[in-house]
Computed example of a mutant assay.
Amino acid sequence: MPSNLIRRADYDPQTRKLSIWLVTTQNRYDYENVPPETYEAFRRVFSKGRFFHRHIRDRFRYHVTPLG
């Protein structure tokens, strides 16, 4: 998953939680209630950062976990 913005992304279909690690921070962002269709679309797109900004970032409640 090469991206200038997103270092890693994991999705748990049971909890519908999408976890995103950004290249620019030492945090993990856990987005709640992300539909499986949204995650599948995210996986398929070429520009992960653009999709993240347009369809995920300001659309779902999230929690930040500092990792560093």
Rank of each mutant, 00 (worst) to 15 (best):
residue 68 G to Q: 13
residue 47 S to A: 09
residue 17 K to E: 15
residue 32 E to I: 07
residue 42 F to D: 02
residue 49 G to N: 04
residue 53 H to G: 02
residue 37 E to S: 14
residue 65 T to K: 13
residue 64 V to R: 12
residue 28 R to E: 13
residue 8 R to Q: 13
residue 37 E to P: 06
residue 1 M to H: 09
residue 49 G to T: 01
residue 49 G to M: 02
residue 21 W to N: 06
residue 5 L to Q: 06
residue 37 E to D: 15
residue 62 Y to V: 05
residue 36 P to K: 10
residue 58 D to L: 01
residue 43 R to I: 04
residue 35 P to M: 03
residue 56 I to W: 02
residue 13 P to L: 07
residue 8 R to D: 15
residue 27 N to C: 14
residue 49 G to V: 04
residue 14 Q to E: 14
residue 60 F to R: 03
residue 51 F to A: 04
residue 12 D to T: 08
residue 44 R to T: 08
residue 23 V to N: 12
residue 18 L to N: 00
residue 7 R to V: 00
residue 24 T to P: 05
residue 10 D to T: 15
residue 14 Q to N: 13
residue 40 E to P: 00
residue 21 W to H: 12
residue 5 L to G: 05
residue 60 F to P: 03
residue 43 R to F: 05
residue 55 H to E: 10
residue 17 K to G: 01
residue 47 S to D: 15
residue 18 L to V: 01
residue 23 V to S: 11
residue 9 A to H: 05
residue 44 R to W: 03
residue 54 R to V: 01
residue 38 T to S: 05
residue 46 F to A: 14
residue 22 L to H: 05
residue 19 S to P: 00
residue 37 E to M: 11
residue 8 R to P: 01
residue 68 G to F: 12
residue 54 R to A: 06
residue 67 L to M: 14
residue 38 T to F: 02
residue 51 F to L: 06
residue 65 T to V: 13
residue 31 Y to A: 04
residue 8 R to I: 08
residue 2 P to Y: 10
residue 14 Q to T: 12
residue 64 V to K: 11
residue 47 S to I: 04
residue 20 I to C: 08
residue 13 P to F: 08
residue 47 S to K: 11
residue 38 T to L: 07
residue 42 F to S: 00
residue 27 N to T: 08
residue 3 S to Q: 05
residue 40 E to S: 13
residue 39 Y to K: 07
residue 46 F to Q: 10
residue 22 L to C: 05
residue 31 Y to G: 04
residue 43 R to P: 00
residue 45 V to P: 08
residue 48 K to A: 01
residue 48 K to Y: 00
residue 6 I to D: 04
residue 55 H to G: 00
residue 50 R to T: 07
residue 34 V to W: 01
residue 32 E to C: 11
residue 21 W to I: 11
residue 62 Y to H: 14
residue 23 V to A: 10
residue 4 N to K: 13
residue 24 T to L: 15
residue 14 Q to S: 14
residue 37 E to R: 13
residue 44 R to S: 14
residue 12 D to W: 06
residue 19 S to Q: 13
